[in-house]
Design a protein around this nucleic acid. Structure first.
Length: 414
RNA sequence: CGGGGUGUGGCGCAGUUGAUAGCGCGCUCGGUUUGGGACCGAGAGGUCGAAGGUUUGAGUCCUUUCACCCCGACCA
């Protein structure tokens, strides 16, 4: 993409109504736009980042048999009344409105009910199990107070996968499998080292649920980390009993602030009971489907990654989620234009994503923008370098600059 | 929802004891520049969140209201 064709602009000044670093930088760099508190538009560059995060999650969900679908945000109240969760006393973040005819509808804050209801059309036999439908969907939650930029919005992207299993035993196997896959997602996003599988409160069907918590000062949760076992305990279940369960002592744990970047939960038959989702087992008897739910918030992850890696010059995206791998800076006329154009075509032709700064502005502005946007590799083509047949490559994360020949450059970026 | 704070050109801000708004960035035009957000000159752009009120006169005072931010509570 050529910067000259990009409609967004960068800004030296951060908006005064944002304090969160992720929102300030993402807005300054032109990745998002604030519509209202907790509600953000994804601009072209931000959309690329969000899509990259979603793609990674999608690949991992598909690797364990996930079936992607897309459910509706608009929800009729009936199915929610069946489970008792239409009431504002039970779910206090509902956005509700009415159809023209007067019937009440809500904007989905989650999808257990409609999906369980949907699966009644397809699950009848033990042969139909297990299945793992999932989706990427905008969830709506009328938070009393949204904050921290992309980290806690009223409208946000969520990957929610639900498991439908024949038995708890079968469920437990999948639960373990998807937990491992979640960790792989965080690894690919560059957050692996600082993300911990964390014990949290369970429900009627399991003593614990698990959250994936990434250590960060902007976190809303406090977790107690056991570095040796690479696990953690959420403050909400930080008791002697839990410590004993996990075979750890208080002395071995360190308290840290963390951001919840995912959760896995054993639902059991809570929803299959409420909505009567059953199947005929091998022995001819009717049984309730055993369920689990598994969430990851791509938009929250985007905010966290932005905040986590940023430095005083701006954003620093891991290569896997960056809107482009290369920021091509062109300095000079004629020869520089010719060489930069050729390099742009060549890199793009090789499948390397490039943001080509073809604007007629001074070099300093291009350098500053490349840093603010956080593109992993900055490649500079200038008249000064053409004479020596060299390209300058600066790595965003380290700031290190090296000079490379054309072939070495291609090797470096491939 | 409780407490605190803020709303003035696109963005960031200043406006002293009330007298129909000013700066920086950005933008437009001309020129000089061109390896770290250049410089000179000339311009465009706001009636001060909204409504009501006090006053000869309100961005400045009063009332109501909306929005946004922070702390807390809440977080299926």
């Amino acid at each position: 993409m050529r910067i000259s064709e990009l409609f967004t602009k960068t800004s030296k000044l951060a908006p005064s109504d944002e304090v969160a670093k992720n929102a300030q930088l993402l807005i300054r760099a032109g990745f998002i736009n604030k519509e209202m508190a907790g509600v953000y538009t994804y601009l072209p560059l931000g959309k690329l980042v969000l899509d990259n995060i979603i793609t990674i999650i999608r690949e991992e969900m598909n690797s364990i048999g996930g079936n992607e679908l897309s459910m509706t945000a608009l929800q009729s109240k009936e199915v929610w009344e069946t489970s008792g969760r239409w009431s504002d006393d039970v779910i206090d973040v509902w956005f509700k409105t009415k159809l023209a005819g007067g019937s009440e509808v809500g904007l989905a804050p989650t999808h257990e009910e409609p999906l369980t209801n949907l699966m009644k059309n397809f699950i009848h036999s033990y042969k139909d199990l297990p299945v793992y439908p999932y989706q990427f969907q905008i969830k709506f939650r009328n938070e009393l107070r949204s904050k921290s930029g992309l980290m806690r919005g009223r409208e946000f992207w969520m990957k929610d996968l639900y498991s439908f299993s024949r038995t708890q035993k079968e469920h437990d196997v999948f639960y373990e499998k998807i937990s491992n896959v979640y960790q792989r997602v965080y690894d690919r996003l560059g957050l692996g080292e600082s993300t911990y599988k964390t014990f949290a409160s369970g429900g009627s069907f399991s003593k614990y649920s698990h959250e994936f918590q990434t250590v960060s000062d902007v976190g809303e949760d406090t977790i107690y980390i056991h570095e040796g076992k690479k696990i953690a305990i959420n403050e909400e279940v930080f008791t002697d009993e839990v410590l004993a369960d996990l075979g750890v002592t208080r002395e071995e744990l360190v308290a840290k602030k963390a951001v919840e970047v995912g959760n896995v939960f054993t639902l059991g038959t809570k929803f299959s009971d409420a909505l009567d989702l059953h199947f005929t087992d091998e022995d001819g008897t009717s049984k309730k489907v055993f369920m689990g739910s598994y969430g990851i918030g791509p938009s929250r992850l985007m905010g966290l990654i932005a905040e986590h890696f940023a430095d005083d010059k701006g954003l620093v995206w891991p290569v896997n989620v960056a809107p482009a791998k290369v920021y091509l800076v062109r300095i000079g006329d004629q020869d520089a234009v010719k060489q930069a154009d050729e390099l742009y075509d060549e890199l793009t032709g090789r499948g390397i994503t490039v943001l080509y700064d073809d604007r007629n502005v001074r070099p300093g502005e291009k350098f500053a923008d490349s840093e603010l946007m956080g593109i992993p590799y900055r490649v500079t083509v200038s008249e000064r370098l053409i004479a020596d047949n060299q390209y300058e490559v600066t790595e965003r994360s380290s700031g290190e600059t090296i000079l490379l020949t054309h072939n070495d450059l291609l090797d470096k970026l491939s």
